[in-house]
Amino acid sequence: MIELKNIEKYYANKGVKSYILRHVTTSIKQGEFISIMGPSGAGKSTLLNILGMLEEPTYGEYHFMGEDVTAMNERKRIELYRNHIGFVFQAYHLIDEMTVAENIEAPLLYKKIPGAERKSRIADVLDRFNMVAKKDLFPNQLSGGQQQLVGIARALVAQPSIILADEPTGNLQSAQAEQIMDLFKKLNEEEGITILQVTHSEKNAQYGNRILTIEDGVIKEDVSVNN
């Protein structure tokens, strides 16, 4: 599904290149649940951003579902990730001025999905996440765990083939974190959604079936997990 070949990312400052990522080559298959681990500043988030097409690599090849992403124009790229990628953030990043239902609706609007279908999909997702009663609340009226649920619901409603999650439980208490991780696992196993998460937690990493460890911009380890 995803092929990375020799991805490099560096910033040139007064002729000195400071590398964030070096020689990253890997491939991700449909249906995998991958955890990216590593110390702070190792380049985990940058890798995730490159995968999510929010950042461009300085060098290297990135194929997403057989298409060369680096050669695409912005419009095409937006089109691509609009249809295939869902994002989940550590700080949830819900839009404060929108209600729960509106936040979930937002990606569908950009996909130009007709109103009737939008309604049914939102109803469906709210139902699945047990949030029907909260659909007209604003994000600041929810707890952190609930906000992250909305964040995931928003990522899911567009029916992506891959979810990129940047420390999705980083701001949550452990009980809530567990709930979120269970949800990811369920989505991965029951619906076959590819999941890629950045995490600091050894425990959370165990939910997936593959762990990539990055240090100083280089992939140090790539191990499979059997659970």
């Binding site: 999510g52 937006i78 990043h93 404060d96 937002a106 990606p107 950009y110 996909k111 928003r154």
Partner: peptide, 16 residues
């Protein structure tokens, strides 16, 4: 700013 960032991630064009 956050609204803009999130919307962009959700697939909004600059023009929109």
């Amino acid at each position: 700013a956050k609204e803009v960032g999130v919307k962009k991630v959700l697939g909004a064009y600059k023009k929109q």
